[in-house]
């Protein structure tokens, strides 16, 4: 069963263009010029229920725009989207009951309230009864270890504690699909590891589909089996993390062997060193930049 189906998805933004300086500003008023930027250009993919997918790419590749179209925030210009069999554009509210979103760069919680009050607010947003909300808060507080600071105003929490609360707020209604946009941005390595462990646990126990965008290779390696790389609004790679690494390992070994043959030092050929996922991604991003 597929949790997400995307076919030929496109989104174009019209951006104003202006020449440098005051003269450019005046010219822009008299003769405004705009440029069309295709943020997402004919993207197609699907995600199975319970799958953990990394949707990555360099800055400005179209990741966030895609996630925003999948969650009903942005209207696509073309193509078809279905999340849990629901079109986000036609039934945004219906879909919102079944998905959760965490935007690492945007805070959804009220900073002057305690996490407990915030969770009660989110319970009301998702039409949970008082009892259901209390039970869910107790369960998630236990699992995410929030009890020590659940009654402290959010503005007084550390970033790691706040992100844990953000994730809990997005899970209060037991979503079937969780969209995570840079969930570990700015966290220290220990907190990152904790957050990853909690996401894995949630996927394991509640069979939640995870759609992750992140620039942190650790997030991708430790959470996801499958990876989709986008650049210039198009998918450039859709494969398993394992196959991607093994493919690069083979390619690197072949390169080292070829070089040793060329230099006539075949006897000095050694096995290619292990290549990290980060190096692979840098290589892919650079080769995409070079066209």
């Amino acid at each position: 069963m597929q949790a997400i189906t995307v076919e030929n998805l496109s989104k174009t933004f019209r951006v104003k263009r202006k020449e440098k300086g005051m003269r450019g500003s005046i010219k822009a008023i008299l003769h405004p010029q705009t440029e069309e930027i295709r943020a997402v250009n004919g993207v197609s993919f699907s995600v199975d229920e319970g799958e953990m997918l990394a949707f990555i790419g360099p800055n400005g590749a179209g990741k966030s725009t895609t996630i925003k179209m999948l969650t009903g925030i942005l209207y696509p210009d073309g193509g078809r989207v279905e999340v849990l069999g629901i079109d986000p554009m036609k039934k945004r509210k219906q879909l919102a009951y079944r998905i959760g979103t965490v935007f690492g760069q945007k805070e959804q919680l009220w900073t002057h309230l305690t996490p407990y009050d915030n969770f009660r607010f989110f319970g009301a947003i998702y039409d949970l009864s008082e009892r259901e909300t209390e039970e869910r808060i107790a369960e998630l507080s236990e699992r995410f270890e929030l009890n020590a600071f659940i009654d402290t105003p959010v503005r007084n929490l550390s970033l790691g504690q706040r992100i844990r609360c953000e994730i809990v707020a997005s899970l209060i209604h037991k979503p079937k699909v969780l969209f995570l946009d840079e969930p570990t941005i700015g966290l220290d390595p220990v907190v990152k590891e904790n957050v990853r462990e909690l996401i894995k646990q949630m996927n394991r126990e509640e069979h939640t589909t995870i759609f992750l965008t992140s620039h942190d290779v650790g997030d991708i390696e430790k959470l996801c089996r499958r990876i989709i790389i986008v650049n210039d609004g198009q998918i450039v790679l859709d494969d398993s993390v394992e196959r991607l690494k093994s493919h690069y390992q083979d390619k690197m070994a072949a390169d080292v062997y070829a070089r040793s043959q060329e230099s006539g030092m075949a006897e000095k050929y050694e096995e290619a060193p292990n290549i990290s996922l980060e190096e692979i991604l840098v290589d892919i991003y650079r080769s995409e930049e070079d066209g």
């Binding site: 969650t71 509210k93 947003i125």
Partner: peptide, 10 residues
């Protein structure tokens, strides 16, 4: 407006 658009409310 993002945080309002992901809520199942008007």
């Amino acid at each position: 407006l993002d945080s309002y658009l992901v809520q199942p409310k008007n």
